[in-house]
Nucleic acid binder design. Structure first.
Lengths: 148, 148
DNA sequence: AAATTGTTTAGAATCATTCTAAATGTATTG
DNA sequence: CAATACATTTAGAATGATTCTAAACAATTT
């Protein structure tokens, strides 16, 4: 019962996200939206999503994954971010927040905005306004041999 | 006189940087190192450097530019950073610092580390240590029509 | 200066991403 | 609900940044 209701709700959410982007509802978009928007926040690449869908027997071309991710991003449903030169990551959390990056795992974890206090000690250059502040914190396992 | 001395000093600095990376001194590397290390700090791509050198009639292949930038980076003489998915930027300033990005110009400007105070309100995850903190601040021209 | 080792190069290879144009699906209208 | 218009998907080609390859060349060592 509860299970089915959640399933339904997740689908509803996915559908409303697609429509809020002014996009037609298609099976491919629904499959993507369900994986992106109904569940915990994710940091994922187009290729990762594509192989996830393939594994789940959803027929979708890589071009459509790229296409859809870009349109979701333009509609403000995703945020694109860059950590290495050869692929784009998409973040399902579009609220202002920052990132921990676990170097050994190559994985990202959100840092809620209120876990970090960023204070400008001098004001930004004349004639400019701050549009966004992105903080990227690299973490590694504590090195216990690191006795100074 | 003074001009020639500066020229010499710049060359000396470039040479010592190459040698500090354990690399042989070659004309190509010297040309690159002079442009990278003797002058104001830069944020530049391999292609940009390559065409700059071409313009200055320095014969060097793009492969060598990439090669050299990567080796300088591994030696800690440069820092690589990522802002869009299709090219790598190299920063000649390897001191800890942050970046302003001028959206209209597509250009970067350093934010000295002591212009920004970053306070962790909760500690990083158990068992991890913070290796680096990178802040990226997007700026745009003030929009005077922005009356709320 | 011969031999060893490192560097540069042109061009090919790679890989993420975008483009193209044809086929298919969805919506709209009478 | 058929006909038309319009949007989407797709396979495969194209693109563009970067890396690889292997041959020519330069620097260093003996």
């Amino acid at each position: 019962m509860k299970y089915n209701k959640n399933r339904k709700n997740r689908e509803k959410l996915a559908i409303s996200q697609i429509q809020s982007a002014g996009m037609r509802l298609t099976p491919q978009r629904l499959a993507l939206a369900k994986r992106l928007f109904s569940g915990p926040d994710r940091h994922i690449t187009a290729e990762e999503l594509h192989s996830e869908l393939k594994y789940a027997d959803v027929r979708i071309s890589l071009a459509t994954v790229y296409n859809t991710l870009n349109r979701f991003t333009n509609a403000g449903l995703l945020r694109e971010f860059f950590v290495d030169s050869n692929q784009s990551y998409f973040d399902t959390n579009t609220e202002p927040h920052h990132h921990f990056f676990y170097e050994e795992l190559g994985k990202f974890v959100d840092v809620p905005i209120n876990n970090l206090n960023i204070e400008f000690l001098t004001s930004p250059p004349k004639g400019t306004q701050v549009d966004s502040v992105e903080v990227f914190i690299k973490l590694s396992k504590v090195d216990s041999s690191n006795k100074k």
